[in-house]
Simulated assay, not measured.
Amino acid sequence: MKFNHLIRFTPIYQSRVWGGRRMETLLGAALPDATTPFGEAWTVCDRPEAPSVTADGVTLHELWTNHREAVFGKTLLKSTSPTFPLLMKILDACDDLSIQVHPPASMAEELKGEPKTEMWYIAHADPGAKIYAGLKPGATRADFETALLNGTVADVVHVIEARTGDCLFIPSGRVHAIGAGLLIYEIQQNSDTTYRVFDWNRVGLDGKPRALHVQESMQSIDFTDFEPGVQQVQSNGTLVNCEYFNVKVLSGSKLAGIPGESLTIAVVSGKITVGGTTLKAGDFALVPATLASPSRLVKPADAESQWLEIRVPV
């Protein structure tokens, strides 16, 4: 099998009570039906319940397991992860998501979950849209417990006015929620463990209240995490550089990495052409390690075209 071109996967759409249709209206996605509120598109995923598959029927898991060096490069050969370490999504929040937390590595095994650190890039924000992240200054565990009893959890969680182009880092243990009116690109550890601590007293698509995980949440929340801010873009485009992923936002004509290096491109606005393949906003593509330099040249359609470069650190 030769890997001399970009590798693309078919998105896996997930219905959510808080979802909508903006992946269709803003990104031109072909959603599976005409009425379901789709909240998530899993665009790069190596999980058994939702495996990413190419148009030729090759799964991301097969690439990671059987073609590691050719697709992901020599540096990732030493990875002991049984699956590709990252999960990438697009989220369409037309209603507030639950206030939630992901377990830190120190607690995940005890809670029978998987740790999850993630980041959000806001591709579209309606006027007045909000993000909830961390605690308000001075809020204590006791304050949080009282707010749980009173149904006022949002009053002790820090609120950020969201703007298109903002990026927020969400380490495991940070209480958070995506507010209504946001279209977000999410890059995260390959985990699907989420503990809901408050769900705005609403019901799910089946008409029943969704399950809460208050005990697990209270064990996971970092009660010293106050008033986090958005990420500042570094001079080289870096948004987040942590032990799990490195993400940059870029524009202008340039090479997507060097031969021998693997990365993922996610277009957040406009269009770009890479090695003869045109990608538009909402498209993700894996750049295989064996791709030669000429085929790595990114040509943006115009000055408004931007994309994320996503790497697994080595």
Results as ranks from 00 to 15, higher is better:
Leu149Thr: 12
Val153Gly: 04
Asp155Cys: 01
Glu161Pro: 11
His158Cys: 12
Ala147Trp: 10
Val159Gly: 01
Ala147Lys: 02
Val153Met: 09
Glu145Met: 05
Ile160Leu: 15
Thr164His: 10
Val175Trp: 11
Leu148Asn: 08
Gly179Trp: 05
Cys167Glu: 03
Arg174Ser: 13
Val156Tyr: 04
Gly179Tyr: 06
Val175Arg: 01
Gly179Lys: 03
Asp166His: 04
Leu168Val: 14
Arg163Gly: 06
Thr152Trp: 05
Val157Gly: 08
His158Gly: 06
Asp166Gly: 00
Leu149His: 09
Pro171Thr: 09
Ala162Pro: 09
Asp155Tyr: 03
Thr146Phe: 02
Gly173Trp: 15
Val175Gly: 01
Thr152Arg: 02
Glu145Asn: 01
Ile160Ala: 07
Cys167Asp: 05
Glu145Val: 06
Arg163Thr: 06
Pro171Met: 10
Ile178Asp: 03
Ala147Glu: 08
Ala162Lys: 04
Asp155Val: 00
Ala177Gln: 12
Glu161Asn: 15
Gly165Pro: 15
Thr164Val: 07
Ala154Lys: 09
Ser172Trp: 11
Arg174Gln: 15
Arg163Gln: 13
Gly151His: 03
Ser172Gly: 15
Leu148Gly: 10
Thr152Tyr: 04
Phe169Asn: 05
Val153Asn: 05
Val153Ser: 09
Gly179His: 07
Arg174Lys: 15
Ala177Lys: 10
Pro171Gly: 11
Ile160Cys: 11
Thr146Ile: 04
Ala147Cys: 11
Arg174Tyr: 13
Glu145Asp: 06
Phe169Thr: 00
Gly151Leu: 01
Val159Gln: 13
Leu148Lys: 05
Val175His: 04
Arg174Ile: 15
His158Val: 07
Asp166Arg: 00
Val156Met: 05
Ala177Arg: 09
Asp155Ser: 09
Ala154Pro: 07
His176Cys: 12
